[in-house]
């Protein structure tokens, strides 16, 4: 086979580039806490009422002696529950775990301008943990087409300082 020496060199460099990309993804994953969601659990989308998703909202939990929060979100046509009618309110600098699923069709769950971005698939629970570093409001966007009023589906996440966090709105 006739391969020009420049081309041989280029192919070697290409392999190097590929290795570099994969290495930086692994580095980010392990060392910088930049992760993606994996498999968590399946759920019957037609009977969410019997699960925690039946009373969606923010819950307080204690894990390893630390106060953390869990947020159960239902994405429905065409709203985030909670998130659309009232914002999801969570404290800053605290671990927050979202559990997201859908009773009807596919939706997206994107906290605009951040790395929190996941699909909400009927029958599957998306589980992700994050820490909001600053107190501010974030826009919540459905970024997967979910039907004729898809463009109306939006919401808000309100991150408040730990000291100002009102625990009376928590779901028991």
């Amino acid at each position: 086979m006739h391969i020009h020496k420049f081309e041989r060199f280029w192919i070697k460099l290409s392999f190097g580039l590929i290795a570099f990309f994969i290495a930086s993804v692994i580095y980010g994953f392990v060392a910088m806490d930049l992760k993606v969601i994996g498999d968590y659990q399946t759920i019957d989308p037609q009977n969410l009422g019997e699960t925690e998703f039946g009373t969606p909202g923010v819950r307080k939990v204690t894990k390893n002696g630390q106060t953390e929060y869990e947020v159960y979100v239902q994405t429905i046509q065409f709203a985030f529950q909670p998130g659309t009618a009232r914002p999801i309110t969570v404290p800053a600098n605290t671990r927050v775990t979202f559990y997201i699923t859908s009773p009807d069709v596919l939706h997206g769950f994107e906290v605009a301008g951040t790395n929190i971005n996941t699909m909400s698939i009927p029958g599957q629970v998306a589980k992700l943990t994050t820490i909001f570093p600053e107190s501010r409001e974030y826009g919540l966007v459905c970024n997967e087409y979910c039907g004729p009023a898809h463009h109306i589906m939006e919401g808000k996440i309100k991150v408040v300082p730990k000291s100002e966090f009102d625990k009376s709105n928590l779901v028991q």
Partner: peptide, 9 residues
């Protein structure tokens, strides 16, 4: 499907 639930890492 990187952002999908239900597919393992």
């Amino acid at each position: 499907q990187y952002a999908d639930a239900g597919i393992s890492l």
